[in-house]
Design a protein around this nucleic acid. Structure first.
Lengths: 218, 218, 218, 218
DNA sequence: GATGAATGAGGCTTCATTCAT
DNA sequence: TATGAATGAAGCCTCATTCAT
């Protein structure tokens, strides 16, 4: 009759959630298959059955975060009508809102996202890079074009660098969110609320992006 | 009889240099002892003999970068006399100059430094954190106090967060310097010059730090 | 409702054909159940359902080749009337013709047969040996008796060894037919025609079998 | 003082001997690292330390047989003076004598050799093939040229096929020597003496090689 | 009949470390 | 001071099989 008395969530989902948690907390390389299968209460071979390999599992976890994130951003951009020039701060708020929504649905998603971004520039991670680029390159590029138009930075190279400076702020902050919140509220058992942090972050990024360009550089 | 006819640099130094290079390029965990000893042309057991363990080697490599960096910063601060309030941009230039000098002396030092900072907020890296805190906590705090005074940010928590936002910019940028420079100069074989990048970074950080504080947050 | 609109061949046959192909190309041990079920476009569990186990499948594949081969040889012998002494070369031609006919009906059959013969003398393959012996021992022995009578080799042990020497020629040649044909016709895309090879083989075997016996051996 | 009370043979040799035995008895693929290290009473990781991988161990085992075999044949050829035409039977006796000597020094060597030759024509064993070809291709070719000259077979393709027919006899016989000897002397505990078998084999091969060529084939 | 899911056993390899010399 | 050898733990992956449906 009823099927899984003791198994309300299916195995693949359990693996995915366990992997998300452990990848978020420890990183991809640092997390072992055994940790994942123990956490998920699943046989070690089940990962291979459902995801092919550890690498396949990483891809699935990445998709699980990036897919809804891209969709959220695209929807927000679309609702802005076809204005070709959205200002910087509204764009950053679109991003921040998307991040917040993702985070609400899945408290590990942002950490996973940040782990991906960390790897995205590592020379020895070409496989993950290729996957990310192929799956999400175009979609993220759309947002980047808006960002560049809204930034007011005319020089292409200056924009490139500022983009990564500020990407660094985001990645570093959200990657270490738990630790930073713990430092911020010593003694307190404060949950790692993302919203106030992003509220602090957006104006800093905006100001950084719009800082006057050093004359000698360009 | 005599030992190193062909060995002008001693074993420990060779290990240290090899480890620095590989840690910088690949990260601590990703680098194996065998890679290090192969690069250093040294016996596998020599690392444990000279440094006790891989962890000990990491500490030594960290010291090799952090010690001169702290000294450089302290000297620069001292030469400013005992003005208690140095402005933000001069402080950042002190930091940038120190980083540049370190980089000139040892092209892997900054990458190693960034690897350390990446780990400094990871919950599963308590051992490295304890080492860094004990060895350099006080010395770095001096600079942080200057920074806070110069930042103009009166609220302590706001300063805390902005500090880490901007630390993120630095860490992310310098960690991925090679990849970013490669993206910036496609086709070109540009050496990863750090100086122009820092020149771009300082005004962005300055502006970010001095952004108007969001009214609702505090 | 109706089951195989799109499935003109039934599952068991599809498995058998896929297994034949893969066993022929790769060997029994080297071929995995997953390869077989993928090739057959069949569920992984279907093999065990229809054949009980991998071992059972191997038996079925062996039968699929050996049964018609034995029947063919028996028929040819019967058509020779009840002459008790058929000469060696006609006997070998009976065998060659049988092999050729089998091959025409099923291009993987001979490779499978050779794989079986390879295993037939391996000490760790007692299960397959027992199966072959029980199923085909008597029938093949009939042919062997004819062969011995026709060989002209009077000494039983000498016949035993010569039989296996020449069996080796056949097994080795037909097992590696593809590779050998490829070496024989470099550049050419020659299909692995078995007939000309057997035409070359029969006289060699005949001569070998009828070589003068070394005086000292017996 | 004395070094290895319990370890008179060094680890690498013990591994090599154990691997030789098991490869000879079971084949390369069928033999597991664990069987080898158990037989050699050695840690599982020791194989990797000394030979790099299972594949590296297979290469070493192959070398251990092929090197002395080639050397033996070369020496025998050299002692024939510079006669450019040695007759077929003397050549086969050179080969047989070499095989016998190898076998005396190492009772598993011939089985290993035959395992190599079995794989030498398998399409999925390109790595082993490449190794064998590179290491011994030239040396074995010298012997093959003598063989061709001595065979009296003028047509190149006919020689190619006859060579492999007769190679098949050798490979099959020596591969299954234990089983065949057991069948030959039922009840007896006869050691697998190779010499009488080769004495029976040489005239058969000689006759086969010199069989009249089928008119229609060439 | 047939299947998707799951599993335990076992495969090879890699790692940091330690030991005896 | 230095080293070649050895090791136990752990890594990921693959296999044939079985189970519930």
């Amino acid at each position: 009759m009823e099927q899984q008395m003791y198994d309300p969530i299916d195995t693949a989902s359990r693996i995915l959630r366990a992997a998300e948690k452990l990848f978020a907390e420890q990183g991809f390389k640092e997390t072992t298959m055994r940790q994942i299968t123990t956490e998920a209460q699943v046989n070690l071979a089940a990962v291979n059955y459902h995801f092919g390999s550890k690498s396949g599992l990483i891809h699935a976890v990445a998709e699980h975060t990036l897919e809804p994130l891209c969709a959220d951003i695209e929807q927000a951009l679309a609702s802005q009508g076809h204005k070709h020039n959205v200002a910087l701060e509204p764009l950053l708020n679109i991003l921040a809102s998307a991040l917040i929504r993702i985070h609400r649905g899945n408290s590990y998603a942002l950490s996973v996202l940040m782990r991906c971004l960390e790897q995205a520039y590592r020379s020895n991670q070409s496989e993950l890079q290729a996957f990310l680029l192929q799956s999400y390159g175009k979609r993220l590029n759309v947002f980047l074009h808006h960002l560049r138009a809204g930034s007011g930075v005319t020089d292409e190279r200056e924009f490139f660098w500022r983009l990564h400076f500020l990407l660094g702020s985001i990645v570093f902050t959200l990657s270490n969110l738990h630790a930073l919140v713990a430092l911020d509220t010593p003694g307190g058992e404060a949950a790692a609320e993302i919203e106030p942090v992003l509220k602090r972050l957006v104006p800093v990024i905006t100001a950084g992006m719009q800082a006057p360009v050093q004359p000698g550089v360009i």
